[in-house]
Measured scan of single mutants.
Amino acid sequence: DELEKRVKKIARKLNLSLDQVEEWLKRNNNDELVEAVKRLKKK
């Protein structure tokens, strides 16, 4: 979905793993995208 695409884009842009992106999003209080990261990690 759109949020998952955004997460992947962030990960690529910042050259981070999904775990690192998740931490980064949590620090930025971006719950919506944190949920998207969790969905991606399950895939």
Rank of each mutant, 00 (worst) to 15 (best):
E23F: 02
L3H: 08
V7A: 05
K43R: 11
S17V: 06
A36F: 05
E22K: 05
D19M: 06
L16T: 02
K13E: 15
L33W: 05
Q20D: 10
Q20V: 04
E32V: 10
K41N: 04
K9L: 12
E22Q: 05
L40H: 04
E22N: 04
R27N: 14
D1M: 11
E32M: 09
R27Y: 12
L16C: 11
L3P: 06
K43P: 04
K43N: 07
D31F: 14
V21P: 00
E2P: 10
K38E: 09
L3V: 05
N30K: 14
E2N: 08
L16Q: 03
K8C: 15
L3G: 07
K41P: 02
E32N: 07
K26G: 08
K38W: 00
K8D: 08
V37M: 03
I10Y: 01
N28W: 14
S17C: 13
E2A: 12
K8M: 14
K5F: 09
E35N: 07
E35Y: 00
L16A: 06
R12N: 11
L16G: 02
E35F: 00
K41Y: 04
D31W: 15
L16V: 07
R6P: 00
N29M: 12
A11S: 05
K42T: 11
L16W: 11
R39W: 01
K38C: 07
K41L: 12
L33H: 01
E32P: 06
D19H: 07
V21I: 11
R39E: 07
S17N: 11
N28M: 15
D19R: 04
N28G: 14
K26F: 05
K41I: 13
W24P: 00
E32W: 11
L33D: 00
D1G: 07
S17T: 13
L14V: 03
D19W: 05
E35G: 04
K8W: 10
L40P: 01
L25Q: 00
K41C: 08
K42V: 11
A11Q: 14
L33T: 01
K38Q: 10
L40I: 11
K26Y: 06
N29R: 10
E4W: 05
R27Q: 15
L3N: 09
E4D: 04
K5Q: 13
R27I: 14
